[in-house]
Structure formats: structure tokens, C-alpha cells
């Protein structure tokens, strides 16, 4: 019950993110979500795409440094307190959240959160048992059709 996130090392210089985006475009890959974490001189671009395998092949070809990480994609209702609910479940199980970012799909009244936690299995178990919907890669693609 996870999706594959691709994290790419990018120098913090003008045009570097554009170069990466062009590689994605050139290969006809569609981006679902993107988040950028930046240090003073470099950044980590984290992306969720429709075809992670194709993207990793393309990045290998272009000699990028990157990693593929399994992260959770949780559906949250568009109402007050939804985020707290998820965070509380994780905290109760003593699961640490490394980072998170959100994206929207065509589905009304719902948003999606990418969760990078220190223990995926425990998080999947805890969230599912509390009725939180977690997407797998196929769900994700279905959702955005």
C-alpha cells in the first residue's frame, strides 16, 4: 500500500529544476505531485509520477543522482481536523513523520497527503485500521485519469 517517490539531487542554481522538468517532459511522463526541500546549495526534488520505472530509467540515462522511496499516499477529507486525525494516529503508534506534502486530484472533497514515515508497515497498519484510505500506485493513476 505505497507509492514510489523519486527524489532527485539538484544543485541550487538557476535553470536546474527546469532541466529536470524537461527530462520528465521529453519522456512523456506525467507528474502527480512535487515537493522541493532545499539546503543553501542544493535541493532534493521529490516527485510522484504516473510511471516511476520509466522516470528512473530516464534519470539514469541523464546521469542524475536519485533514489526511489516507498511513501504513503493518504486520502484526507476536505474538512477541519482531517490532518490532525492522521497525525494523531501516527503519534499514538510512535511513528515519526520525516516529511509530508499534499496534492489534489479530480475527486471532489478530498485531498491527498504524501507521508514519509520511519516505519511504513506500522503506519499502513495503523492508518488502515482507523479507516484512512491509502493509495497504491494503480489507485493513484486511476484517480488522475
Amino acid at each position: 500500500m505505497d507509492v514510489k517517490q523519486i527524489s532527485v539531487f539538484v544543485e541550487n542554481k538557476p535553470g536546474r529544476l527546469a532541466e529536470l522538468a524537461k527530462v520528465i517532459r521529453k519522456n512523456g511522463i506525467n507528474m502527480r505531485a512535487l515537493s522541493l526541500a532545499e539546503a543553501p546549495e542544493f535541493g532534493v526534488v521529490r516527485i510522484i509520477v504516473d510511471d516511476p520505472y520509466k522516470l528512473s530509467e530516464a534519470l539514469k540515462e541523464e546521469e542524475y543522482v536519485f533514489t526511489v522511496t516507498a511513501v504513503l499516499a493518504a486520502e484526507v477529507q476536505d474538512q477541519a481536523g482531517s490532518l490532525v486525525r492522521i497525525l494523531d494516529i501516527l503519534a499514538e503508534q510512535n511513528i515519526n513523520l520525516e516529511y509530508t506534502y499534499t496534492f489534489l486530484a479530480h475527486k471532489k472533497d478530498a485531498a491527498y497527503m504524501i507521508l514519509r514515515v520511519n516505519n511504513n508497515d506500522a503506519a499502513v497498519k495503523a492508518l488502515s485500521s482507523q479507516g484512512i484510505r491509502l493509495l497504491c500506485q494503480d489507485d493513484l493513476n486511476e484517480l488522475l485519469k
Binding site: 526541500a37 532534493v44 543522482v65 533514489t67 516529511y99
Partner: peptide, 13 residues
């Protein structure tokens, strides 16, 4: 930078 020294977590890098 190399694959071995990289991580999706900025704090690790």
C-alpha cells in the same frame, strides 16, 4: 554527489 551519499531526506544528506 553520488547515489550512495544521497537520500530523499535532506537531513541525512
Amino acid at each position: 554527489m553520488t547515489k550512495e551519499m544521497f537520500s530523499d531526506a535532506l537531513s541525512e544528506v
